[in-house]
Design a protein around this nucleic acid. Sequence first.
DNA 1: ACGTATTACGACATTCCGTCGTAGGGAGAC
DNA 2: GTCTCCCTACGACGGAATGTCGTAATACGT
Lengths: 121, 121
Amino acid sequence: MAREPELERRVLDTLWQGGDWSVRDVYAEVGDGLAYTTIATVLDRLHAKGRVERAKDGVAWRYHATRTKEEALAAEVGRVLQRAEGASEPLLVAFLDEVEQVDPAALDRLEALLRARRGRS
Amino acid sequence: MAREPELERRVLDTLWQGGDWSVRDVYAEVGDGLAYTTIATVLDRLHAKGRVERAKDGVAWRYHATRTKEEALAAEVGRVLQRAEGASEPLLVAFLDEVEQVDPAALDRLEALLRARRGRS
DNA sequence: ACGTATTACGACATTCCGTCGTAGGGAGAC
DNA sequence: GTCTCCCTACGACGGAATGTCGTAATACGT
């Protein structure tokens, strides 16, 4: 329940649209009255944390997310599971409740995926 | 990727064992060389955040978790889902990968739960 | 050589969290 | 009543994460 890094999240959401972004690109997308260097700093910190990668493009850097949005979010869920010390049934039930609430149709997709996975393995 | 409130987590884990706990009780459980007031403060902050509830018992308070561990963790997953703007298939796949890695048998339980849910609704 | 864009680095405020100390109040022991 | 304990309330301090910039240095095109 720690505070959510709002600006970092918005920057990541931008990168998750795909492709390589210069600081100026990201700035144009989320720089809402902010200073250019603010975006540069956020990108820099994200890079230091390994959340984004970058390659030189002339003088400037071009950034892209290290992991896709789905991978990143699933990893967060994974950390929750870890804290739960296994996916107990009550947790799974509560999880399904959450999924149903956010996106009811996802339950069908989930079931289909589970069946497919079982067939594969 | 925000920081983990380590002590708060340990205190919550204690309360999640069930029942009502005085500060001294919790202190005996997790007060690992810490000061008594440290535990009191953590409990107080948890209460301010609505994570725990408390009732007077003579001079002292007795604390208990507002939500069960499963509810709390599922709520965290819910927040992730919210950020995902719906449970897309790639996210579900990544999620299943996580579950499998943490607790392979959970996939079977999940499938059974889904079937049961479908029968119910 | 000049002006422009970009980065590197550091700085400052705020908030969260871990960690205590102290003051003050109530309840039982004498 | 007075003393002694235990408990709470409140505030304080330091470190880390974040949002937010400013400035200095640096490279590039003309």
